[in-house]
């Protein structure tokens, strides 16, 4: 017994080091799995509050570009509104409001990272605004990411610039599906993999979100085809996609709430169980 105590006292620093190292490794491994621990994320009260305060200051620096972006989008929406001369279509829209498939929550990016392999954004709206994990996030130019964790006032987003992210996407012209991933190299480009060889692909074609996921509605812009390669082993296309979005400069974003999501999930579950 005496010897055990002696051993522990003699190596106390080493034991402390190993213990703390184990804790940090555990946290690291947990962070690399898809759904992460809730405490070590920038959505908590302290870090969210700090980031919001920092953002309040730094917001002024790119106020002009943000204003321009919002003005352009306003103009686009106005043009759609005025183009519908047929008054029937407006009443039709109001009628279908009750079973609208998607709701939109407006939010602001208060922290944006794009320099590591697993990038996350922090938004200033959370569970109080009805944000839950696995909701889609877009802005006026296109896809941004998927909600990961939420706290009452803040939420974190898995950016599309994250090697863990995997989003269903398709080629707008030919409706061929693939998975959107990021290889961790350039902030302006993502990769669309597993596109069948049958697809007719040309440089410059538009890539949009596919209708197979319940997270995003169909036909949200992602980017244009920049380079096409054929994977030797799988004989599928690997397409480099140039993003419409500048992921290094994000301001206001929209969170997409899917209203039919639970219904769809339940349906799929019961079908599988039968």
């Amino acid at each position: 017994m005496q010897q055990i105590f002696n051993f522990i006292f003699r190596n106390s620093t080493r034991i402390l080091f190993l213990l703390l190292l184990c804790i940090s490794f555990l946290l690291t491994i947990q962070a690399h799995s898809y759904h992460r621990s809730k405490i070590i994320s920038s959505a908590n009260y302290l870090s969210g509050g700090v980031y919001e305060n920092i953002n309040n200051v730094s917001e002024y620096l790119n106020l002009k570009t943000q204003n321009d972006a919002l003005a352009i989008e306003n103009a686009r929406l106005k043009s759609i509104l005025f183009a519908t001369t047929d008054s029937i279509s407006i009443t039709k829209l109001e009628k279908t409001k009750e079973n609208q498939p998607y709701d939109i929550v407006v939010s602001k990016v208060i922290h944006n990272s794009y320099n590591v392999h697993e990038n996350y954004l922090t938004l200033n709206s959370g569970a109080l605004q009805g944000v839950k994990s696995d909701m889609g996030v877009i802005n006026n130019l296109g896809l941004v990411g998927i909600i990961d964790n939420t706290s009452p006032k803040y939420s974190t987003v898995i950016s599309i610039l994250n090697v863990k992210s995997r989003i269903n996407a398709k080629i707008k012209k030919s409706n061929h599906f693939g998975s959107l991933i990021w290889d961790g190299k350039s902030t302006g480009f993502v990769q669309l993999i597993d596109v069948p060889r049958l697809a007719a692909i040309r440089k410059g074609d538009t890539i949009v979100t596919g209708g197979q996921s319940v997270i995003f509605p169909e036909n949200i812009n992602i980017g244009t085809i920049d380079k096409v390669e054929i994977d030797d082993q799988t004989h599928y296309y690997t397409i480099t996609v140039k993003l419409f979005n500048d992921m290094t400069n994000l301001g206001h974003v929209y969170i997409i709430k899917s209203n039919n999501r639970e219904e769809l999930n339940n349906l799929e579950k019961t079908t599988k169980n039968e």
Binding site: T13, L16, F17, I23, L27, A31, S47, E118, T156
Partner: peptide, 30 residues
């Protein structure tokens, strides 16, 4: 030394909270 280990663990962990990286900074600091 024990105080340094504990302090650097806390230092790293705070950085991790702010950069959404799990325990990466904590392990490096340790």
């Amino acid at each position: 030394r024990a105080a340094l280990l504990l302090a650097s663990f806390l230092l790293g962990l705070t950085m991790d909270v702010f950069s959404n990286s799990g325990g990466v900074h904590a392990a490096a600091c340790l």
